[in-house]
Design a protein around this nucleic acid. Sequence first.
DNA 1: TAGGTTTCCTAGAGGCATTAGGCAAATGAC
DNA 2: GTCATTTGCCTAATGCCTCTAGGAAACCTA
Lengths: 187, 187
Amino acid sequence: MARVGMTAERLTTAAAELADEVGFENVTVSALARRFGVKDASLYSHIRNAQELRVRVALLALAELADRAADAVAGRSGKQALVAFANAYRDYAKRHPGRYAAGQLRLDAETAAASAGRRHTEMTRAILRGYEVPESEQVHAVRLLHSAFHGYVSLERSGGFDHSGEIESSWDRLLDVLDTTLRHWPA
Amino acid sequence: MARVGMTAERLTTAAAELADEVGFENVTVSALARRFGVKDASLYSHIRNAQELRVRVALLALAELADRAADAVAGRSGKQALVAFANAYRDYAKRHPGRYAAGQLRLDAETAAASAGRRHTEMTRAILRGYEVPESEQVHAVRLLHSAFHGYVSLERSGGFDHSGEIESSWDRLLDVLDTTLRHWPA
DNA sequence: TAGGTTTCCTAGAGGCATTAGGCAAATGAC
DNA sequence: GTCATTTGCCTAATGCCTCTAGGAAACCTA
């Protein structure tokens, strides 16, 4: 039986692509096997189980998002950096809905610690350098920003904003308001 | 064959309870059938399919959350109302993780319009009465609040805050900051 | 080339979702 | 109470998904 050259990395990449096409929840060992023209059982030479596949896609998504955000933020500071980061974040979610969803997977502590997730935090801290948020408040400011971005994108994706339109202007206003809030961080 | 008295409502309630126990994604027709001591196929006398079951649990969760929030907000205004609403929201998510997850299900436009989702929006608008956010900006302010609350709860649930502690103080600061932001809503 | 390792397959088991038809309980009409 | 109709549960079956174990062939190394 000729080998098709599957590797865990190839499977992961294909699963990520499939996630964007059919939704992360519909990425299955069976669907992936069909994509490679092999039988389901063949995949277990490369991945332990379906959960490992999901975790791999999640890690890939977190890394991609961090790269995109880093590119967008490079050379910018203050409001420009904030807006660039936020737009990279939302843009990624819109272009790669399945990967974005994968990035929300709950990971075990060890895996999470090794993921690109901490790069997101570091980048956000770097953005805060353009503002005068006290050191003791930085963890709170980081969480406010991540909550607002993720919350907006999440509600947008689940249709929470479908009835009232103005989605783009709400996003722009959100960024304005957050910028102002950071510039006048309350004591 | 004696009847166990299943109805769509009873199935929905049981599914919601099961969601909180094992996670919304693990609520299946099979698991529910086991809970009632009947065979899987018997449930189809009462529900059309698994998707209908999920939608029903989603609607139940949205309604419960709206009731909780309404109770919490009653008789309060300004920052107190904001904090009460937000705390009801997060509290519900913590006590009923499975139901909360169900509430995020993407619904078709008709179902969404008939759901308790709009009550959330109305309540938030009522909270804004305690602030001087211009009418034209209210949709943006509502979305900022919902994004922040949902984002925080969501990231908390998926372990995004596990590495740095201070989760309660970050929440309290978030509410302070949002209150201040509303009081000085930027033009 | 020989031998060891790895990858693909088959077979199978168990879980999940759903349909169709049968039988008995429950309900409604007289 | 009797009878007809409706409804709810079951069985049987189909198809999809996940995963294990063992076998055959491809691949790699010495």
